[in-house]
Design a protein around this nucleic acid. Structure first.
Lengths: 125, 125
DNA sequence: TAGTTACTTAGCTAATATCCTAATGTAATA
DNA sequence: TATTACATTAGGATATTAGCTAAGTAACTA
């Protein structure tokens, strides 16, 4: 269960356009890590990528992208794993699953409360 | 459908603790507007509240809270309506419904992709 | 072992965010 | 009409964030 501090970190992480796009592409597998091409048999999740591969897609310096990835990691919406001298990045689906649950619960509770207050179920709108 | 710019605004709005708490309490009906007590028959959603009532719950000045509410409004996660000299604030459930949908879809697509890649459905974990 | 690749850390600047007080606008009320 | 209540706007101080370059660390490669 995500506490408030964790949710604030997640919202802050996703409030910056560059971090949002990194997140989006990590989740949708939009990037392919260059090393994966050279070593097709490597034991890595096919949608994993690495820092420099992500940086190629942005007009920002590598340290800037590295710092953004660090913030996404600290918000626990991605995971990073060092293998050799590369850092592989993967989505942390569990956190996103919990965020989906939070918003869904909020909507559900709101609809139930509205029904109590107004006798006006959403289904009848 | 929320575009990226709108999502960034929502994430930014919710990344600040004060705004998060305002949002939380507006959604859960945690505040009762003082004028509602004096005028019980007033035509206002029972979970609506107003700016100064919200400000009472924080150790920040009224202009500061007013600015936070403006940002929540511009992110379209609350709505405001002026009645007399008070501004009533209500949750914008439609936006939250869409956020729930976004996260849920992300999880769903991820699970389907994983099944394609790994032949490893989530249900079997 | 020397050089290369991948990434992070440190230190800096510019822009943005967050708070304040004072002033202003506007509606209700005495 | 004068006063009070509610809210916003304006202007300013301070903190945080987002970017950069340069330098450092660690692992691979020739």
């Amino acid at each position: 269960m995500l506490d408030m501090e964790q949710k604030l970190k997640i919202f802050k992480a996703l409030s910056n356009e560059t971090r949002f796009l990194i997140f989006k592409n990590v989740f949708t597998g939009g990037y392919t890590c260059s090393l994966d091409k050279k070593q097709p048999g490597v034991e890595v999740n096919p949608i994993a990528t690495c820092v420099s591969t992500i940086a190629e897609h942005f007009n920002f310096s590598l340290p800037t992208i590295s710092a953004h990835i660090k913030e996404l990691k600290e918000a626990k919406i991605i995971t990073v794993e060092k293998k050799g001298n590369k850092v592989y990045i993967e989505p942390n689906i569990q956190t996103i699953r919990e965020m989906a649950g939070c918003f869904t619960t909020l909507v559900k509770n709101f609809d139930e409360n509205r029904e109590l207050f107004f006798n006006d179920p959403v289904a009848m709108q």
